[in-house]
Computed example of a mutant assay.
Amino acid sequence: MITRQLAEEIVEQTMIRLNRNLNVMDPNGMILASGESERIEKIHEGAAHVARSGETLSITEADLAEWHGVKPGINMPIHFQGKLVGVIGITGNPEELTEISTLVQLTTEMMVHQSLITSHIEWNRKRNELIFEELTSGKPLSAAVHERIFQMDFEGKMSFVTLLIELKKPPSPSHRIIEQLEGHFQKQTVVAGHSQLNEIFLLVANEEPSLMEEELYGLLHFLQKSAPGRIGVGVAVDSIFDIRTSYLAARNALDFGAPGQQLVYFEDVELMALLKRNPQDDLAKFTGRILAGLSEPLCETLTAYFASNKSHTETADRLKIHRHTLSYRLKKILDITGLDPSEFQDAVVLHLALAIRI
């Protein structure tokens, strides 16, 4: 069905080019938009006839007595996907309008097609966003969402993965970036949309897990060219109804991944996520107790030491210090904390304290 807004746009855009009055009518013959504003919302009997017959109707001065609410002109059906959705009328002498009428009809149907297709895509996306929101809310699903999920084709899709894409700035236009992301995964994408202003979700069918990493790096490469951002990858789940688990994992990946890390798997931050779920006061007490007395340079030394897998040579190179200086600092850390960074158990405690300090 043609909306009043679309009808007004058709009349405005077409009249600019034709310099003739146009009317757009609904399938009942009511005028939705017209260059003659006094005719809006009145019934055009000629248009109603066109809607019933599906055939173009020319009305001359001599025919006016046969029709109510009409003027001379040509009235043509407007079709969308094989269905009649309205009627377009050009006011004037039909003999003078013959050459341009077919072009007007074609142009109108193209405008209708573009508008209705775009509206349909946007409606589907909004619906998908509502489905995703309900699936990840942790609350019972509505009957409408249940019905829609069962209508979707999940045949052959053994597992699902949630991807959260955090963009540096809002995409413009936002629908275009989502279409491009959907196209990247093609048939693997189940639903996509906005989860937040600067964040897009993709619920992907994980049909070939071995290819997922390759796909993700390709996606990351695409983002860096068009919409720079980060990707959080959730865990795979075996049922669409378990997507909340995958979503929360992807959320944790973004929340606890290093700021400069562009592709973050939940597995990379799982331990950190588990620890950070504890009360902040408890975390602060733990880090304060373990790291008490350590200066910032000593903390930086420990961070570099663990990042270098406890290699003295690599750590010294990172910090641009002599190996003897490094040994001195590690000995000082042991003296202050009572924990030896070179010992596995003590290193774990120190590493966690550094990682979760506030």
Rank of each mutant, 00 (worst) to 15 (best):
M1F: 09
M1N: 06
T3A: 04
I10K: 05
E12S: 12
M15K: 15
M15G: 06
I16Y: 13
I16C: 13
R17N: 13
L18R: 14
N19M: 07
N21Y: 15
I31H: 04
S37D: 00
E38Y: 06
I43T: 14
E45L: 07
H49I: 13
A51G: 00
E55S: 10
L57M: 15
S58P: 01
I59G: 05
A65S: 15
E66A: 09
G69Q: 04
P72G: 10
G73N: 08
N75T: 03
I78N: 03
H79T: 02
H79V: 10
F80Y: 14
L84Q: 05
L84R: 11
V85R: 07
V85P: 06
P94G: 05
E95W: 07
L97W: 00
T98S: 07
Q114C: 00
L116S: 09
L116M: 14
L116D: 11
S119K: 13
H120N: 01
W123G: 01
R125L: 08
K126W: 13
I131Q: 00
F132Y: 11
L135F: 04
L135C: 06
V145F: 09
D153A: 04
V161Q: 08
L164P: 09
L164M: 07
E166Y: 09
K169H: 11
K169T: 08
P173I: 02
H175M: 05
F185Y: 05
T189H: 01
H194E: 03
S195Q: 01
Q196A: 11
N198E: 13
F201Q: 03
L202F: 08
L203M: 08
V204I: 15
V204F: 01
N206C: 03
P209T: 03
P209A: 08
E214Q: 15
G218A: 07
L219W: 00
F222C: 05
F222D: 01
P228N: 14
G229V: 04
G232I: 09
G232L: 06
V237Q: 06
D238K: 14
I240Q: 04
F241L: 15
D242K: 11
R244A: 09
T245P: 02
L248I: 08
L248D: 07
A250I: 01
A250P: 00
L254Y: 01
L254N: 01
F256C: 03
A258L: 15
E267V: 08
L275Y: 15
R277N: 03
P279E: 09
P279Q: 08
F286V: 14
R289D: 02
L291T: 11
L291Y: 10
L291C: 03
G293F: 04
S295R: 01
E296R: 15
L298A: 15
N309E: 08
S311G: 10
E314P: 00
K320M: 13
H322F: 15
R323C: 06
R323D: 14
H324F: 08
D335T: 05
D335M: 06
S342C: 12
S342L: 10
F344D: 04
Q345V: 07
A353L: 07
R357D: 04
